[in-house]
Design a protein around this nucleic acid. Sequence first.
DNA 1: CGACAACTCTAGCACCGCTAGCTCTCCTGT
DNA 2: ACAGGAGAGCTAGCGGTGCTAGAGTTGTCG
Lengths: 192, 192
Amino acid sequence: MSIQARRERERAERERLIITAARTLAEAEGWEAVTTRRLAERVEYSQPVLYSHFKGKDAIMAAVAVEGCADMAVDLRAARTSTDDPRQALAAVGAAYAGFAERRPALYDAMFSLIVDLPFATPEAPAPLQAAFGELSQALEPLAGDDDLGLLTETFWSGLHGLVTLMRSGRLPREAHERRLAILVDRFSQRP
Amino acid sequence: MSIQARRERERAERERLIITAARTLAEAEGWEAVTTRRLAERVEYSQPVLYSHFKGKDAIMAAVAVEGCADMAVDLRAARTSTDDPRQALAAVGAAYAGFAERRPALYDAMFSLIVDLPFATPEAPAPLQAAFGELSQALEPLAGDDDLGLLTETFWSGLHGLVTLMRSGRLPREAHERRLAILVDRFSQRP
DNA sequence: CGACAACTCTAGCACCGCTAGCTCTCCTGT
DNA sequence: ACAGGAGAGCTAGCGGTGCTAGAGTTGTCG
């Protein structure tokens, strides 16, 4: 029984090794540099080993994405609780979101741009993902007014996501980023 | 001289053929199905011919994207001029934008998600692209208030883009699309 | 100690974007 | 009218991709 246990433990460790290797490589050189060959080399196993842990490359990216959600949730929470004023809090959360996407583009892409394997807007969505969404939601709650909080959060999230992706792909000029963000936050802080 | 002219004309025709073939194939099966081999087969030339017209696959997608912008600009204009009420016009433009993305996902991806070769927020941006942006801008103009119109347009565009991409990648539930769109439009129609 | 089961590796498939270099056609100048 | 040359399009191939079948090795248990 103990042998079985050790094997499972070692397997779990190796799985973590794969995930962190993928994440490290992606953050250093982008996802296009994360090939199954290079990843296998990094973890010092052969390619097929990856497929005994994950269904495919997408599943590895999904695992990295879940980790990324947890990280982002931490950032968002810190921003949200940094002030008592609801509008300042929303501005801080928006800035934290954009900052995360800017600082960790590969992680952000895995979470919100690339793969689709992850269940999102359902109860089966991974907890870290729900946590990150929850932070946005709580930041908006005092400002929701008559709108449905869930839908309002989704819409605000869309705004942030659009800003971030269009800027990162070169479709929006970088220099006006803060001002665009301010406009978005302002529009989601109910008028007086 | 006339021989030269005929050759250039034939070349231009073939270039159009390539672009429309790429567009057709992408709209039918998605961009991942558009490979240089399949595209070459469709136009009944060998692969290298593609490279005598375009620097690479990205350049072909860019050409398709420009066409797509022209199409979208038409849709947006029709929506914008469908009513005199500024808020209804903005709602119509938002719906037209989302409808375009829904109806022609491959075209939309080429324009706003995939390639980066195109110059965007500069005077050198292709005219059709500026036209599409201009429609958004004109729809927002009556509602801009104190905000810079350009930045406001970029921010509203981001909201639409976020809604569309997150929904299409399965990260936002489809059924609430209209209500999210309504929230976005509402937030960008200055409060009374 | 030998047989079996589980695991990992080598090798290879079908595909990708892209290009070097040969061939052949067709226009040009005498 | 014809030889020469330029240009265009082809075949073939490079180095890569995600993924997998099947061989081989390793470690466990009767």
